[in-house]
Design a protein around this nucleic acid. Structure first.
Lengths: 335, 335
DNA sequence: TTGTACGCGTTATCAA
DNA sequence: TTGATAACGCGTACAA
C-alpha cells in the first residue's frame, strides 16, 4: 500500500497533463486512445485511487447518500438498509449510515454530520426530527423519507397505511371467531402506534364490539415490554382469546409470556404481530403478522433519490401492507 | 438551509482572518476571547458547518473510521456495529459502514471505497479478503479485525475461541446425559464453522463417544439450512436426543423443523445454539446457547483504533465465550 | 496573538 | 484534443 498516489503523479508518469487524466477518469471529454491506454496502465500500476475528498471539493459532488436510520442493529430497519444498499448499487453512489436512536439531539447531530460530509442526497428512516428541519434540508438536497409523513414533502415520503394494516389484522382475528381480542400497543408518541391502535378500535367497532380499555396494554415496541404486557393481560384474568401486538418484537415477548403461563398458541390464544421481521417465519409457531415491505421501501427510496439526483421529480411507488397468515392464529376454541 | 457558508465568510463577517476562525474551530492556538466570542456568534448566526471534505484534504484526517461488515441487516453483526458506534461516540470520529456480503469482490470494492474516502482507520468484521490485503491496508492505516485471525496482525485481531465454545456447548449436552448428540455445522469454508465442529468432536472424544458422521449435517448459518438439516436428521431416524447447531439462526430453523415433526424441545430433544442473538432469549423455549460478546467486541475494536489513532499500540481486551443455559436443553429423557 | 501565503488532490474554465 | 490556470474550503508554517 504505497502512500496514496495522486492524479498529478499519474499524469507525470504517463507524460500527459493532469486534466487529461481527469478527463479519462470522468469521461468528461474525448481523449486520444493511445494516451488513454497509457494512463490507464499507469493508474493500474501505481494502484491509483482517486481522492473522494478532493473530488468532492472540486466538483461539489461526493457521490454519497446520507442515510439517517434509528438503529443499525434493529431487525426492522436492517432490511430497509439492505434495500437502500441494493438500490444504490452500481449507481456510483454510496450510502453513509448514521443512527439517531429516536433521540432528537442524536438525530440532529447525525444530520449535521451528514451535511458536513456534503452528501448529495438524504434518506431518512423514521425518527423524531421536526418536519421543519427536514423541509429545510430538502430545500438544498434531494431527500426521501420513509415511515413518516412530512407536510409539504408528500411526494418524497413513503408511508404505509398503518391504520388499514391494523384493521385488517384485527378483522382476521375477528373472522376467526374471536370476540375478545387484546391489543399490545406501542408508545403513544409514535404515530404508527397510534394508527395501529385506531385500526384495531375501528375493526372492533365495525364488528359491533365494544372497546375495552382493560384489553389494551402499552408497550414500547421491544420484546420485554411485550412480555410484560401479555403477562399483565393474563394475570388480569380478562377473557381474551387473541392478542394483536403492534409489532413483531412485542409479539415475541408476548409469545414467551404465554408460554410461561402455560397457554398454548394458537390453541388457547391466537397471536398476531405487525412488521413481519425476518425471524417471524421461524418462531414456534410461525407468526401471523402484517408484512411491511421494508426491503422494497429501501430500494424505492434509493431509486427515488437517484432519480432526483438526475433532476427528475420524486416518484415513490405505491407500496402496501400485506396480511401474512401463518400458524399463530386459529379459530377461536369452541367457536 | 442557506447554501453552505464557508469559513472565509465567517471570517469576513467577524472581521478576522480565516486562520483565526480555523484556530477557534480546532483549538489550535490561543485566540483573543473577544474575537473568539464574535466569531462563535457569527458561526451560530450563519449556521456554519465546517466542510469535512476540505478539512480532510487540508489536514489529512477525515475523522472517519471505515467499518467493513458483511451484512448490515444481520442480527449477528448488528450488535457489533452498535458497539462500534458506542465506542466511537464522543471521540469526534464517525463510523462509515460498508458491507461485503462475504464476497471477495464486494469486500475489495468496499475497502477501495473506504480508502478513497481516506478514512483514518479501519475495523473489519469477518469476511474473506485475503490476509495479505489486510496487512497491506494495516501498513498505512490503523486496523482492527474482529472475528478472524490475520497472521502478522495478531495484536490487532480479536477472535474468540470457537473450539472451546463448541466444546463447552457439547459438554453441557453430554453432562445432561445425552449420548447421541447431532450437530448442524456451518459452511466448511468458514473458519469458525470448522472450529466449532472440531470442538464438538473433541467433546465427544473426551467423553469416550464415537464420532458419527451420520449425526452431522451441514448448513450455511441461515435459518432455512437449519430447518433442512434438522428435518434430514429426524427423517434419517437417527436416535439423537440433542442437537447442537453451529449458530442460533440455524437453531431457529431446527426448532421449527422439530416443531413440524411434533418433537418437543427440550422434552424430546434438547437444542443448543451458538452466538446468543438478541432474539434467542425470546424463542420458545428460550434458547440455550454460547454467548458471543459482539457488542463488547465492537466497543473494544473502536477503543482500540482510537488508541492507535493517538499513536498508542494496539490493545484488545481478552473477551470470552460464555455458556448461556436457558430452557431448550434438559436432561435426557429417561437418563 | 494574528495574518499572509501556500498546499491538499481534483475538477472546471479557458485558450490554444 | 490538450494543457495551463484558477478555484473548491480549509489547515498550517511562517512572519509579524
Amino acid at each position: 500500500m504505497e502512500p496514496n498516489v495522486t492524479l498529478s503523479e499519474v499524469a507525470r508518469l504517463a507524460g500527459v497533463s493532469a486534466s487529461t487524466v481527469s478527463r479519462i477518469l470522468n469521461g468528461t471529454a474525448n481523449v486520444d486512445p493511445q494516451k488513454r491506454e497509457t494512463v490507464t496502465r499507469v493508474m493500474a500500476q501505481l494502484n491509483y485511487r482517486p481522492n473522494v475528498l478532493a473530488r468532492g471539493l472540486a466538483s461539489g459532488r461526493t457521490m454519497g447518500v446520507g442515510v439517517l436510520t434509528q438503529d443499525i442493529s434493529s431487525p426492522f430497519y436492517g432490511e430497509a438498509l439492505r434495500g437502500i444498499e441494493r438500490g444504490l448499487a452500481g449507481s456510483g453512489y454510496h450510502p453513509i449510515f448514521t443512527s439517531g436512536h429516536w433521540r432528537l439531539e442524536e438525530e440532529l447531530g447525525a444530520i449535521d454530520d451528514l451535511l458536513s460530509r456534503r452528501v448529495d442526497a438524504f434518506i431518512v428512516l423514521g425518527g423524531v426530527v421536526p418536519s421543519g428541519k427536514l423541509r429545510e434540508v430538502a430545500q438544498g438536497t434531494p431527500l426521501v423519507v420513509l415511515g413518516r409523513e412530512v407536510p409539504g414533502l408528500e411526494r418524497q415520503c413513503l408511508r404505509l397505511d398503518n391504520f388499514a394494516g391494523a384493521h385488517a389484522a384485527t378483522c382476521h382475528l375477528l373472522e376467526l371467531g374471536h370476540r375478545s381480542v387484546a391489543h399490545i400497543a406501542g408508545v403513544p408518541s409514535h404515530r404508527d402506534a397510534l394508527d395501529r391502535l385506531e385500526g384495531y378500535r375501528a375493526a372492533l367497532d365495525d364488528a359491533g364490539l365494544a372497546y375495552d380499555p382493560g384489553l389494551v396494554q402499552e408497550g414500547d415496541f421491544m420484546e420485554p415490554s411485550g412480555f410484560l404486557a401479555a403477562t399483565r393481560l393474563v394475570e388480569s384474568r380478562s377473557l381474551f382469546t387473541a392478542i394483536f401486538a403492534a409489532n413483531d418484537q412485542m409479539a415475541y415477548g408476548a409469545r414467551l409470556a404465554l408460554f410461561r403461563k402455560g397457554l398454548r398458541v394458537p390453541d388457547d390464544v391466537s397471536l398476531m404481530g405487525f412488521d413481519d421481521l425476518p425471524g417471524s417465519a421461524y418462531t414456534t409457531p410461525p407468526l401471523t403478522t402484517v408484512r411491511q415491505p421494508t426491503h422494497d421501501m429501501g430500494r424505492a427510496a434509493a431509486t427515488c433519490v437517484l432519480g432526483m439526483l438526475r433532476g427528475e421529480e420524486a416518484t415513490l411507488p405505491p407500496l402496501g401492507l400485506q396480511l401474512v397468515i401463518r400458524e399463530s392464529t386459529a379459530r377461536r376454541p369452541g367457536a
